[in-house]
């Protein structure tokens, strides 16, 4: 009986995860992105009007090289041990940010609500 309840909770967690993942993957996003380090916004770009460029972002002597090309953004080079940030590729899937945990860096779509707020004001 106890086990059934616990297995039920496991299944519920799994389903919440699946639904949540689908919501994140299919979330609509705009063209504004924030580059965030240690929770503070370093840069904001509107990718639809930003020229192609590369940025070097430093953290404690380590760097991430961020590329903006044809209205898309990604990490092309990084000094981090895991390189997950590079493998995540272009920022384009739903509301999923690119993160580099070792270098405290994340590149995320700016919240649409900010735009709405601006319109209301």
């Amino acid at each position: 009986m106890k086990n059934k309840v616990l297995i039920g909770i496991c299944i519920a967690i799994f389903l919440i995860g699946v639904i949540g993942s689908a919501l994140v993957l299919f979330a609509p996003h705009g063209t504004k992105v924030n580059i965030v380090q240690d929770g503070a916004v370093l840069y904001t770009f509107d990718l639809s009007v930003t020229e192609d460029q590369t940025l070097e972002i430093e953290y404690n002597g380590r760097t991430n090289i961020v590329q903006i090309e044809n209205g898309k953004i990604r990490v092309v080079e990084a000094d981090c041990p895991d390189k997950t940030c590079i493998r995540m590729g272009w920022l384009e899937t739903g509301s999923l940010p690119i993160v580099c945990l070792p270098n405290h860096l994340s590149i995320e779509f700016a919240d649409e609500r900010e735009d709405l707020d601006a319109v209301i004001k």
Partner: peptide, 26 residues
Amino acid sequence: AAIFIMGTGVIVYLPFLLVSGCIAGA
């Protein structure tokens, strides 16, 4: 830990981690 270090934006990873945690844990 990630929310403390990186800010709240990383919370969108939670559902993916729930799915992978269930599978990997089992």
